[in-house]
Design a protein around this nucleic acid. Structure first.
Length: 323
DNA sequence: ATGGTTTTTACTGCGTC
DNA sequence: GACGCGGTAAAAACCAT
């Protein structure tokens, strides 16, 4: 399409173009009708039934037109194509290792020294850049997951601090950015007293549960973070509000938990289960009954566990109120 | 890897609406 | 008959060793 002059389009050309565009499309998966690509809206639409087959198509071509090659050079603002095989898509500067100039002539010793210095610095900048990019992606992920989980600002802050530490201590090699970012968030949420269960974290992460757990343990150990087992009470407010329970119920739930702690019921049991059971028990005590299955839903805990725990809670309450 | 503990899954029976 | 609840047994998951 590098015509050297502007011409009136002949009808023949137009027909040729039309054929070309219909060649790239196929038939509608719904009704078998002809597909038409609507470049203005970036959609591919079926002519017969109106089914939108593809949306958000991106026109990767230039938005300008050139009528001769000189103009093309002038208007073009792009360089070499990018590749995804390199962390920076191949956009960074490369300096050849051979001490030759562009014509293949050997460089003077002075020039050689200069090139050596340039190589050193270029390498430094490049790796620094890659770390920056790495960090940027990780922080973006942390932010995304944190908002999906409704975690406040300070947790994200903590998470990014943990991530930065992991990065500077060279914990990344061999582990995915995603995994470490997720672990950092998990750790941060627990440290901040607004824990999310591993299952909840897994739901919003792109990484498998096992990997998160493994990476988390590793990060905690290497950075010697001190994280206490989650306090069941910290789950209560969230469950209570998810179930539209009154403050009174929430208070009762906390009371039950404190009692249980005194009685030593809670060791070894999952904090989430305890919290769920206390919320359920409290709802009974305050006549705001919610069903076991509702609680099990918001807490992601089986009903059986709720039953077992809440029996224990009530026992501790009546059996040994003080001690 | 192993064994002990906890949680989950699946099923059953009972009472109520 | 569907629902909420309680219990049980077996499977699965988890944890320390």
């Amino acid at each position: 399409m590098t015509d050297t002059s502007i011409r009136q389009r002949t009808s023949e050309e137009e027909r040729a173009e039309e054929e070309e565009s219909s060649e790239s499309t196929t038939t509608c998966p719904e009704c078998g009708g002809r597909l038409e690509s609507d470049s203005e809206h970036g959609e591919t639409v079926c002519q017969d039934c109106g089914l939108v087959v593809e949306e958000d198509a991106v026109d990767r071509g230039p938005e300008w037109r050139a009528f001769d090659s000189a103009e093309k050079d002038q208007k073009s603002r792009v360089g070499a194509p990018t590749t995804n095989m390199m962390h920076d898509k191949g956009l960074s500067t490369n300096i050849g290792w051979q001490d030759k100039d562009a014509y293949g002539n050997t460089l003077s010793s002075r020039q050689r020294e200069k090139m050596q210095r340039l190589r050193t610095w270029n390498e430094r900048f490049r790796t620094r850049d890659s770390k920056e990019r790495n960090l940027k992606q990780a922080l973006g992920e942390i932010d995304r997951m944190a908002s999906a989980l409704g975690l406040p600002e300070n947790v994200r802050e903590t998470a990014s601090v943990i991530y930065r530490r992991a990065l500077s201590e060279d914990l990344l090699p061999g582990r995915s950015i995603e995994g470490v970012a997720t672990s950092a968030l998990y750790a941060a949420a627990r440290q901040a007293g607004t824990p999310r269960s591993l299952d909840e974290i897994t739901d919003v992460s792109r990484v498998e549960k096992d990997e998160i757990a493994r990476t988390y343990r590793y990060v905690v150990r290497e950075l010697s973070l001190e994280i206490q087992p989650a306090d069941p009470e910290s789950y209560v407010p969230r469950f209570a509000s998810d179930l539209d329970l009154s403050d009174e119920s929430e208070r009762r739930a906390r009371e039950l938990l404190r009692n249980a702690k005194e009685a030593g019921i809670h060791s070894g049991k999952s904090p989430v289960g305890l919290a769920a059971a206390s919320v359920y028990a409290a709802s009974l005590l305050t006549n705001e009954k919610v069903t076991q299955s509702e609680v099990s839903d918001v807490a992601n805990i089986s009903e059986v566990t709720i039953r077992n725990r809440y029996h224990e809670l009530l026992e501790a309450e009546s059996g040994a109120p003080s001690l």
